[in-house]
Amino acid sequence: MKIVVIGGTGLIGSKLVNKLRQLGHEVTPASPASGVNTITGEGLTDVMKGTDVVVDLANSPSFEDKAVLEFFETSGRNLFAAETRAGVKHHVALSIVGTERLDNGYFRAKLAQERLIKQSGIPYSIVHSTQFFEFLGTIAAAGTVGDEIHLSTGAFQPIASDDVAAAVADVTVGAPLNGIIEIAGPERGRLVDFVKRYLAKKGDPHKVVADVHATYFGSELNDQSIVPGENPRLGKIDFETWFSSQLQKA
């Protein structure tokens, strides 16, 4: 198959491109650097020629409410226009577990993206992923208040980016789901505890405070907010294995 990966040079995209090429597919990583811009429409018509599957991993450069919504709506409309002209048979998108439950700007924008996908008329698959292990440091930074880090006690089930790429690869080469699949890591706990483990291993001296009212990028969490429902696809890489792999790469 010919597969175009929008955002194919990013964290998940680069791993996905390698996996799909190993499976023998013709894969084009597309990004503004390669002359493909989903916001302006530049390069979309050419890159879509003869394409069977499009995987959308693009992300907004700004997380400001209005900007992120405009990004996903504009990008989606331009993508679907080009895909429709080219006769693309399957659109795959990576989204987030909990888009329909959390009321913050980024989640609202992802939900708008999902609505466009469902309305496009193109067979589709949406992969809802939990947060990546790779962003534990970002979560800690966002919760920093002076010399302390205040973090939610809500349930959390992070996943390694390698497991995300593997799941997206499987969905990409399969038949369109015309629905949503959820993926998550193999361990569930409290958000505060995962980040505390991460910071302890990094030797970070900050005091970590468990705070039921601490927000997660603007939203308070409960034990259902950002964890999957029944029967998600679980990754194979647990926290200890993932952290050890990061040390080996350093």
Rank of each mutant, 00 (worst) to 15 (best):
M1T: 03
K2F: 07
V4R: 01
V4T: 05
V5D: 00
G8E: 08
G10H: 04
L16C: 08
K19M: 11
H25F: 14
T28L: 15
P32K: 07
A33K: 15
G35D: 02
T40P: 06
T45H: 11
G50W: 04
G50V: 11
T51V: 13
V55L: 08
V55R: 01
A58H: 00
P61R: 12
D65S: 12
K66S: 14
A67N: 11
V68P: 00
F71E: 05
F71A: 07
E73Q: 15
S75G: 12
G76A: 10
G76E: 01
N78T: 03
N78K: 09
L79S: 08
F80I: 07
A81F: 07
R85T: 11
R85M: 13
G87D: 11
H91S: 01
L94P: 01
V97R: 10
G98D: 09
E100D: 14
L102D: 02
L102Y: 00
L102G: 02
Y106E: 00
R108F: 09
R108W: 09
K110S: 03
L111V: 02
A112H: 02
A112C: 07
Q113I: 00
Q113H: 12
E114R: 06
L116D: 00
K118T: 11
K118A: 15
Q119E: 15
G121I: 02
I122H: 01
I126H: 05
H128Y: 13
F135M: 14
L136V: 01
I139Q: 08
A141H: 11
A141M: 14
V145L: 09
V145N: 04
D147G: 05
E148P: 01
E148Q: 15
I149Q: 06
A155Q: 00
F156M: 11
Q157W: 08
P158A: 04
I159D: 00
A167K: 00
V168F: 01
V168N: 03
T172N: 04
V173S: 07
G174E: 01
L177G: 00
N178T: 03
I181G: 02
E187W: 05
R188G: 08
G189R: 14
R190M: 13
D193C: 10
L199R: 09
L199N: 05
A200E: 15
V208K: 04
V208A: 09
V209F: 11
D211W: 11
H213L: 14
H213V: 12
G218T: 11
N222M: 12
D223P: 12
D223W: 12
Q224N: 13
Q224L: 15
P228M: 12
G235A: 07
G235T: 04
F243L: 13
S244H: 02
Q246R: 12
L247I: 08
L247E: 14
